[in-house]
């Protein structure tokens, strides 16, 4: 948690200093733009967190630990890919569920896989935004090219963990 504060503090300071060396746009205007994006989050994040902590209580821990835990290996990665692809909704729904799944024992590689699958495949987003905007051909090619990305991310995470150990 502290590292998150420090990371963001340094990022913000760096950006503000960089802005200081340019003529445009003013800090005040940037902050106003930030506030516009902040308003819906002030509603969403509290609701998401509270729902997440209730869900964490309801998740069947043993089932999660055996099917998605560190020991679940490649099978867990494939399951995480499927779960991530069909998980409905935006970050407000996914991240609290992810938090609940991590506290129930989901392994890092499996969670990276799940979030990546949700990010690139997101079937709800494909239906709601992508197909209407981009059409079947472009969407189909993109989905085909992205099918293996989530397992790749999971396997890379495993390699990284093995290299560190």
């Amino acid at each position: 948690m502290i590292s998150a504060y420090v990371t963001l503090g340094i990022l913000l300071l760096g950006l503000a200093l960089w802005r200081q060396r340019q003529p445009e746009p003013g800090h005040r205007r940037i902050a106003a733009g930030g506030w516009r994006q902040m308003r819906p989050l002030l509603v969403r994040i509290p609701i998401a967190l509270i729902a997440g902590s209730f869900l964490a209580m309801l998740v069947p821990r043993e089932l999660v630990a055996t099917s998605l835990g560190d020991g679940s290996g490649l099978q867990g990665i494939l399951l995480a890919t499927v779960l991530g692809a069909v998980m409905p909704g935006g970050p407000m729904i996914t991240f609290p569920i992810a938090l609940a799944l991590i506290s129930a024992g989901t392994g890092t590689a499996q969670m990276v896989t799940l979030i990546t699958a949700w990010s690139v495949l997101a079937l709800h987003r494909v239906i709601a935004f992508e197909l209407p905007a981009l059409g079947w051909r472009l969407t189909g090619i993109r989905l085909l090219a992205c099918l293996i990305l989530a397992p790749i991310a999971g396997l890379l995470t495993m390699l990284l963990a093995a290299a560190r150990a």
């Binding site: 948690m1 998150a4 504060y5 963001l8 503090g9 990022l11 913000l12 950006l15 503000a16 960089w18 802005r19 340019q22 746009p25 205007r29 940037i30 902050a31 733009g33 930030g34 994006q37 902040m38 989050l41 994040i45 509290p46 967190l49 509270i50």
Partner: peptide, 21 residues
Amino acid sequence: LLLILPIVVTAVLVGAYVQAM
């Protein structure tokens, strides 16, 4: 929520700077 809110506020500001720059 109390721990996270300051992070979210800072993160949104970082986003706003990136967008503007």
